[in-house]
Structure formats: structure tokens, C-alpha cells
């Protein structure tokens, strides 16, 4: 029996197939040299369109190919609809071995990995246009997100107990997530703060970080004296701190490193007598003239 859904998809497929033949035929392109003595014969005129261009020719290949492709795609979906008997309740119940078919199961856990997957794709998109490093970062993020998403999808259906499912997921993923997250946070803090260290004068760096340490210490004392600290307040405080670290990291990176006199002192490799090889912080060793390289370093420091 051809079901309703299958009728639509088969009907669409059939219509597109007829359209393909009509279009392939009427858009011209028949080579009468292949059929001497049959000039104007309708059969030979249509032969190309009827044989997918194997014998004879079709007119507009693009339109013909697209119509045929759409017909094939539609017919394929139609064949699934008929094979599943339109996924009606009774056939599904038979497949499930139940009196009525089970409904779709709601996903109750909240996780952001679908959103992060979309974000990763956006990073890849940006990278395709701007930099391959973005592509790499996006692909890494996408792989992580896909893995997390898969584990969530499995855990959501592991048992009928949502709490146990969440625990199962945590048991599998926490040993991976926590060290990885810790490493990312540590790298983020080290990278951001090191940019600031490198950007400001040495003495200022010392005083600044003494001050920051004092502020952190005072905040911690203040918080410990409070009888109760709301979770949201702590979260907000940490988020602010993270944003502050990110901002100083960006500002430091944009300003570039200060000039390092002790490291930029020129020295000649003894005994070579050749061109001076210069080592400046953050620069690849070159054999260019010392004054030129030094000048570049100063400019960057500004």
C-alpha cells in the first residue's frame, strides 16, 4: 500500500522526473548528425532526455540534472515513508513491541553544548575568511562540543532516573573535563597576566601586583567575615575577575612588550667574525644589521 506521505514524495518525484524529460527534450541540444535520416522525428528528439543523455543529447544540462537529482532525492524519501508505513502509530507499536507507540522522549537536562557547537561553526566560518588559526580553534572546539553532546545524548537516555543519568555523565566526563578546564583556566590566567607583566615597566609591575595581591587578600578576608555569601554574588565576582583578566591580557598584548635592555644587548658569537646575530625578546634570530633590529624593537615598545 502506498501511504499518504509516500504519495506526496513519490508524486513529487514522478512530477520532477517528467519535468526533467520534458525540460531535457524541449531545451534543445539534439545532435541530428547522430541520427541521419530521422530529422524531426519526435522519438529521436526525446531519446537523449529519456536515456539520461546516454543516447542522444539533452538541452540544458544543469536544469536537467537538477530535476533528475531532485526526483531521485524525493523518491528516496518516499521509499522510506512507504517502508515505515508513514510511521503511523500501529506499525511503530509493532516495531517497539508495545500496544501503542512510545512518544518522543523529552530532553530534560540543560546543556550548552549545542550552543557551543554552533559557536564553534561560527569560529570556523570566521577563520575561513580571516585566519586558519581560527579554523583550527573552531575545529578543536567543535570536536570537544560534539563529544560532550554525544555523551549527554547517551546519558539522557541511560536509565529512567534523570539524577542517576546526570551522575553517570559526570562520572565519565568529570575526570576529563575538570583537568582540561583547569588547564585552560591556568593557561588563560598565565597568558593574560604575562602580557600585562611584559607590557608595563618592571618596577610598576612589582608594585601593581603587590597591590592586586593585597586587594585579593582583603576581598577574601571580607568575604570570609560575611555570614553567608549568595552563590550568584560569588559567580558574578568571579565573572568580573575573569573579564578583568581578559581585558588586561588584551590590552597588554595590544601594547606589546616593553624593551628588555639586558636581553637586547648585542653580542657577537665569538670567533665567527661574520655578521652579528641578534637576539631580541620575541623576535626570531636574524642576521640583519644590529641598528635596524634594535630600532624595530623600540618601535614595538612604543
Amino acid at each position: 500500500m502506498i501511504t499518504t506521505g509516500a504519495k506526496f514524495y513519490f508524486g513529487l518525484g514522478f512530477l520532477l522526473l517528467v519535468a526533467a524529460v520534458l525540460y531535457g527534450w524541449t531545451s534543445g541540444g539534439v545532435d541530428w548528425g547522430l541520427f541521419p535520416g530521422h530529422l524531426g522525428d519526435l522519438y529521436f528528439e526525446m531519446l537523449g532526455a529519456l536515456t539520461l543523455g546516454y543516447k542522444g543529447a539533452v538541452g540544458d544540462h544543469l536544469g536537467y540534472g537538477l530535476l533528475l537529482g531532485a526526483a531521485a532525492s524525493s523518491t528516496t524519501v518516499g521509499s522510506f515513508m512507504v517502508a515505515f508505513r508513514d510511521a503511523e502509530d500501529k506499525p511503530l507499536a509493532e516495531v517497539a513491541g508495545l500496544r501503542t507507540a512510545p512518544p518522543l522522549q523529552r530532553v530534560v537536562s540543560s546543556n550548552v553544548w549545542a550552543t557551543i557547537s554552533a559557536f564553534a561553526v561560527a569560529v570556523i566560518a570566521l577563520g575561513v575568511a580571516i585566519s586558519r588559526w581560527f579554523v583550527l580553534a573552531g575545529v578543536v572546539l567543535l570536536v570537544i562540543a560534539a563529544l560532550e553532546w554525544t555523551i549527554y545524548a547517551w546519558a539522557d537516555r541511560a536509565t529512567g532516573d534523570p539524577d542517576l543519568n546526570a551522575n553517570l555523565r559526570d562520572k565519565i566526563m568529570n575526570p576529563i573535563e575538570i583537568p582540561l578546564f583547569g588547564a585552560i583556566v591556568a593557561a588563560f590566567i598565565a597568558l593574560s597576566i604575562s602580557r600585562l607583566f611584559l607590557a608595563i615597566p618592571r618596577l610598576s609591575a612589582t608594585w601593581l601586583f603587590l597591590g592586586v595581591a593585597a586587594v585579593i587578600f582583603a576581598t577574601a578576608i571580607g568575604l570570609s567575615l560575611l555570614p553567608k555569601v549568595p552563590q550568584a554574588a560569588m559567580g558574578g565576582l568571579l565573572a568580573l575577575a575573569a573579564i578583568a583578566v581578559l581585558v588586561i591580557g588584551i590590552v597588554g598584548a595590544v601594547n606589546g612588550a616593553r624593551e628588555f635592555h639586558h636581553e637586547s644587548e648585542e653580542f657577537t658569537v665569538e670567533g665567527t667574525g661574520g655578521p652579528t646575530e641578534l637576539y631580541v625578546y620575541g623576535q626570531v634570530p636574524t642576521t640583519t644589521g644590529a641598528s635596524e633590529q634594535h630600532g624595530h624593537s623600540e618601535e614595538k615598545g612604543k
Binding site: V77, F80, L98, P103, L104, A158, T159, D161, L164
Partner: peptide, 21 residues
């Protein structure tokens, strides 16, 4: 896990139709 209630059965064919599309 054995003592936990079993997961409700999945609705058949959903994944197949989505994949085919």
C-alpha cells in the same frame, strides 16, 4: 544502575527519517 528504573523506550523510526532527509 540495575536498580534504577529503565529508560523509557525510544520512538522508532525518528532517527531513520531524520538521517534519510
Amino acid at each position: 544502575v540495575a536498580a534504577a528504573p529503565p529508560a523509557p523506550p525510544q520512538r522508532p523510526r525518528t532517527l531513520l527519517v531524520g538521517t534519510a532527509l
